[in-house]
């Protein structure tokens, strides 16, 4: 039963990534693009963990943790740049 559920979840998160890509290309403002990139990182973490379940290996959790950290830092850096025009003042 688990392989079918895994395939379903893979499909859902893949479709979510496509939605986010659409929002990055067609967005009314720069803030929406930052939001879409943030959501994209979240979906990629979910995909990495799913792939870890699929291949029975724990390596992908470290990759997910790294993605979570760099995603947070990059979103904050983008927002800081939009707000102030400078990241570290």
């Amino acid at each position: 039963m688990i392989p079918y559920a895994l395939t379903f979840a893979f499909g859902c998160f893949g479709l979510s990534l496509l939605f986010n890509l659409y929002r990055i290309f067609v967005a009314p403002g720069v803030v929406d693009r930052v939001l879409a990139l943030d959501t994209m990182v979240i979906n990629i973490i979910a995909l990495l963990v799913l792939y870890g379940i699929n291949t029975h290996s724990a390596v992908y959790f470290e990759a997910g943790l790294l993605f979570a950290m760099t995603g947070f830092v990059s979103t904050v850096a983008y927002c800081k740049f939009i707000l102030r025009g400078d990241i570290i003042e």
């Binding site: 688990i2 079918y4 559920a5 979840a9 990534l17 939001l35 979906n43 979910a46």
Partner: peptide, 20 residues
Amino acid sequence: ISVLLVAAGIFGLVGSFGLI
């Protein structure tokens, strides 16, 4: 585990669908 995976997939899809 299967129910959790399916629910998580649906919620992820809903989140990104709401974005557009």
